[in-house]
Amino acid sequence: MLSDYNFIGVFVVVACIFPFVALGLAWLLRPKKPNQVKTDTYECGLQTIGETWVQFRAQYYIFALVFVVFDIEAVFLFPWAVAYDALPLWALAEAFLFLGILTVGLVYAWRKDALRWQ
């Protein structure tokens, strides 16, 4: 079973080499004449004003938190789904309970207006 992952390992190595080959080929073929205007930041022909690396807005973190909750839930549900056929009927009630708790969380976030983009 574990030897299945040899293939994935070979694939990872080859897939990591592929971009180097492509970019290396381009490096050999392309012209290299940078100048002051070319290397400017693109801003529709205008000078960039102000700081570029601004802080992320707090709202992104709220969405990220909701995402983490649901993603971890999904990780727990994968083994449940595979073994579901062999589990007793109680597994169904457990899944309802589990998803029910998370639904309460989603409804809470919804009522708090966390899911509305401002």
Partner: peptide
């Protein structure tokens, strides 16, 4: 065309 295009790195990046 892509292969023979110049590659520009912005100096602030």
């Amino acid at each position: 065309k892509m292969l023979t295009k110049e590659d520009i790195t912005p100096r602030h990046a």
